[in-house]
Every structure is written in C-alpha cells, then in structure tokens.
C-alpha cells in the first residue's frame, strides 16, 4: 500500500524537481508571476474585506469566520492546483501529440501530465491562502480535536479538488476545447465555498452535499472547528465525513481517468 502511493509520488517529485531546475522563465518574469499569483487570488479576499465595510456579518458569519472558510477552501484549491493544475492543458497536450509521447514512457500517465512543466511559482497561491487562514486561525479557540479536524480539512479538501480537476479535465478526451467547463466547477466551487453556505438557498447546500460534495471541502469541518451548530440542521457526524468523501471522489476521478485513457483516440494520421 505504501509502495503503491509512495512510488508515484517519488516519480512526481523527481520530474517536478527537474522542471524547477530547468525553469526557463526569466528572473524578472518569475517574480512578477509569483507576485501576480499572490495578488490575483488575494484581491478576492480584499473584496470580502470591502463587503464587510458595508455589513457586519455575511449569512450570520463574522469577517474572521468567513476568512477561515475562505482560507480553508483557498488552501485546498491552491494545493490541488500546485500539484495537478497542469491537467487543465490536457486538450492541448492531446492536440500537440504530447500525450502520445507520454504514453510510451514508463511513468504513470497521470503523474506525467500533472508534473509537466511544474512551476514553483504556483506556490504563491498556497502562501496567499495560508496568510488568510493563519490570520483567521488566530481567533479560533483551538483544542486537540479541532487541530486534528483542521489538518483533516486541508488534506481532504485538497483531495476533493484534486479529484475535480482530474475528473473534469477528462472531458477533454472527448471534446478538446471544453477546458472551461471544468472552471465552473473548480474555480466556481472555490468561490462558492469562500462564503458561508447560509448565503445560498438550501437547495444549493443540499446539492453541494449530495451531488457535488464541495461542502465537505471546508464548510462541515469549519462548523466543527468554529463550534457552530449546523444552520441547516444536518447531523453533527456530517462534520467528520470529509475524508470519506475525499476518498470516494478520488476513486471516481481515477475511474473517469481510466475510462478516458482507454477511449483516447490520439490525433492526426
């Protein structure tokens, strides 16, 4: 089991490390890209902060509580994007025949696709989310249970976004220019979960629980950590389900990926 998980991870890191070393980005451009990556998601939080100049709470949650939610989902998607974000380019890899060349190499295809042109600068988004998350965490009344829940939240949340990135990118096996559909679910999901779900109608929350389980990225674990009863009256045990949901999502994503690869038609002659 350890072997099964560890070997691909090692292969990923090896390829990623070579890309970092071989990075062809010019120095000035590297720093601008890094700072830009920090700012481009950072302005979203500044936006929330501005909203709180007008109101004192959003959906019954204070700025710090919203910041905790924002940081939780932000961290999850940033980590997922750092490691598997490149899969967005699957369509162009197919078009350019790069996927063919990856397929005749002895490293799992998914690892190669995700590690391709790995760029360390994408860590800027992780740092940005971490800053907000850290600031919000300073006001949490921590207990061992809550710390454990926070760790589980970040890991499970990342895995859920991993799965979404991969599963929706697989659409590109069938229609190459559908990359943006994935955005609606990944980045759309990220925006959605940046706010307390009490802002949205109950149907949305149910959909985010039973259909596209994004509520498990940060909402349910955060309710536990912030010590708040579920506003929609879901039982308390939903708050510990995130790891289970994450595993299920990962399983579905793996299945979709395998199906996609076996249906792959390659291009051209």
């Amino acid at each position: 089991m350890a072997e099964l998980l560890l070997t691909p991870l090692v292969r990923y890191c090896e390829i990623a490390a070579l890309w970092v070393r071989a990075s062809t980005t010019y120095r000035a451009s590297f720093w601008m890209l890094t700072v830009g990556g920090f700012l481009i998601t950072g302005v979203d939080f500044v936006g929330i902060w501005i909203l709180f100049h007008t109101v004192h709470s959003l959906g019954g949650f204070s700025l710090r509580e919203v910041a905790f939610l924002y940081g939780g989902t932000g961290l999850a998607i940033a980590i997922a994007d750092l490691f598997v974000g490149r899969i967005e380019r699957l369509g162009s890899m197919i078009r350019l025949g790069r996927l063919d060349t990856m397929m005749v190499r002895p490293v799992p295809l998914l690892i190669q696709v995700c590690a391709d042109e790995f760029a360390l600068r994408r860590i800027a988004r992780v740092v940005q989310a971490l800053v907000v998350f850290g600031w919000a965490s300073a006001y949490v009344d921590w207990s061992p249970g809550r710390v454990a829940m926070a760790a589980s939240m970040v890991v499970s949340g990342s895995v859920i976004f991993f799965a979404l990135f991969i599963a929706f990118a697989c659409l590109q096996f069938w229609t190459a220019d559908s990359a943006e559909v994935a955005n609606a679910f990944t980045y759309g999901g990220n925006t959605l979960t940046s706010y307390p779900l009490t802002v949205f109608p109950g149907e949305v929350v149910k959909a985010l629980t039973f259909v596209l389980p994004l509520a498990f990225v940060n909402w349910y674990p955060s309710l536990y950590i912030l010590g708040r009863p579920d506003p929609l009256g879901f039982p308390a045990w939903t708050q510990v389900l995130s790891p289970v949901v994450a595993l299920a999502m990962a399983g579905i994503a793996a299945l979709v990926w395998r199906t996609g690869v076996r249906h792959y038609r390659s291009t051209g002659s």
């Binding site: 980005t25 451009s29 590297f30 720093w31 601008m32 830009g36 990556g37 481009i40 302005v43 500044v46």
Partner: peptide, 22 residues
C-alpha cells in the same frame, strides 16, 4: 523584458480588482 507573462498576470490582478469585478 522578453517575456511579458509576468507583467500580464500583474496587470490582470490590477484589472480584476480596480475594474469593480471583485
């Protein structure tokens, strides 16, 4: 500066924020 990708990302974050899109 040869590679304008960096400037592009910086400009985009300014545009997203100061256009009132956020």
């Amino acid at each position: 500066i040869l590679d304008s990708q960096g400037t592009k990302v910086l400009a985009a974050s300014a545009a997203v924020f100061f256009s009132g899109l956020t």
